[in-house]
Amino acid sequence: MGAATSRDAMLDLAPFWSPIRLTLALATITTAVLLLIGTPLAWWLARSKSRWKEAISALVALPLILPPTVIGFYLLLALGPHGPGGWIAGMRGARTLAFTFEGLVLGSVVYSLPFVVQPIRAAFAGIGERPLEVAATLRASPWDAFWSVAVPLARPGFLTAAVLGFAHTVGEFGVVLMIGGNIPGETKVLSVALFELVETQRWSEAHLLAAGMVVFAFAVILAVFHLEKRGAEARR
């Protein structure tokens, strides 16, 4: 097989580009979608006095503790021809949303949701009532107050949320393995590519990829710490 021939060959970086491109695209789109749906959700969670708040909050946090296999299993059924995913796929003549890039985006949105909602929610909650009351006395509409007061004040929270959502999607493995089908250029992301390299004993390539991801993760965590420090200073 191909694995045996390339194992002893010189280190070839070309096979890395497709998974890297794919992973970056997946993480970028997932983060954008999550900011879009996460912001109103976080706002509601931070300010609502509804009795459903705790339940919704728990639901959002669920992917933090659920094994990715649980999410992967339900997604595999939901995306398939007997679930809603199959219905959506049917509209464009496909059979299932599993094994597609869109399917991975959907899975990643579920999987990374708490990593985006929690920091934004905390930032909104940290603002308190006062600035918004002031905005209201200055006759700012709630919509205006949200955009010109709440969002700017919550900026560090948004940055942390974006970085964490992006990084967590890059680090996703179990869900992708279960719903991806290992298709090069479509669902074969970095973590899955690394898994296959390890399984086929292509250590040198595996080392390179793994070390690259360690460096990336370190940079991300450092960036988050930096953002949090700046956020704390801004609040002072």
């Binding site: 595999l76 059924l77 995306l79 398939g80 021809p81 007997h82 199959g86 059979r95 299932t96 599993a98 094994f99 089908g181």
Partner: peptide, 9 residues
């Protein structure tokens, strides 16, 4: 499992 869940025909 891919076949059994109907994701692949």
């Amino acid at each position: 499992q891919f076949i059994a869940t109907g994701n692949a025909e």
